[in-house]
Design a protein around this nucleic acid. Sequence first.
DNA 1: TTGACGTCGTTGCATCTGCAACGATATGCT
DNA 2: AGCATATCGTTGCAGATGCAACGACGTCAA
Lengths: 142, 142
Amino acid sequence: MPFHLDTFLPYLLSVAAHRTSARFAALYAAEAGLTIPEWRVLAHLDHSGAASVRDIHALVHLDKSVVSRAASRLEQAGLVKKQGDTADRRLIVLRLSPEGTALMLRLSGIAERFQAQLVAELGTDAPTLARALQRLAPGSEP
Amino acid sequence: MPFHLDTFLPYLLSVAAHRTSARFAALYAAEAGLTIPEWRVLAHLDHSGAASVRDIHALVHLDKSVVSRAASRLEQAGLVKKQGDTADRRLIVLRLSPEGTALMLRLSGIAERFQAQLVAELGTDAPTLARALQRLAPGSEP
DNA sequence: TTGACGTCGTTGCATCTGCAACGATATGCT
DNA sequence: AGCATATCGTTGCAGATGCAACGACGTCAA
């Protein structure tokens, strides 16, 4: 009995994730030419206020190098400010600039509308989906 | 009210997909050093018998170039045979070699056990998750 | 038949990713 | 204090990815 790829959860997850990210990226592409890592860094800074590269690396599931390069691009674009931590001079504190804050104000509106649309498409399955995904994607594991 | 990334479905999907794929890849890494595209090509050939690059591209959500290169590597590894279609000489028919069939026999066992473990972890949410993912990942759209 | 157009698989190229260094700094042990 | 060890952010590098060509082949209409 051969194996069926189209009921295999890792495959379904991968395809659904890719497609959903692409749909969302198309929405904010008009607003700002951000990559997904850049968007995640901005979003995290928006709700945490300030964070180091390490914090984002740990909490947002991006490699250190990806965060570092995304932060550099965002700084060059004037959306983020880097600032050496005075207590621990290895750390670099990232904060949204006023322009970054303004951009996130618009982007978070787009994101919330997209989330609402997804929830509408999923109907009553939406909360279960979110719960199941959170179980598959633990917050702290490597 | 700032935006919360950790309830955002595209983000949850991405992290869950990455982590689940990594768990699965670790399982078959010992059995065969396959990349994910290679695994998908093998799995699709296992249950379709024969398929062209185009077929796999359309059904398995991989770029043409990715399928082409994966097929070349698999052929060089002796797991897949390429064969020109006699009717339409643009097409290249891919089939599992005996070695490829034997490998898939072992890999599909690993895959089914992993799927069973995931289902066990998810409990009653598993069928709902699968249904929701299928709705987010339509079979034919570009 | 001829020629325009579409499709197939491959390849080149720019970019992104993940991993392993590396220098700078901090921490802990003696 | 002094030195080994660990952590932080950056960078180099090999490999993978997505996209746009490209040549080869097929299809359709005139």
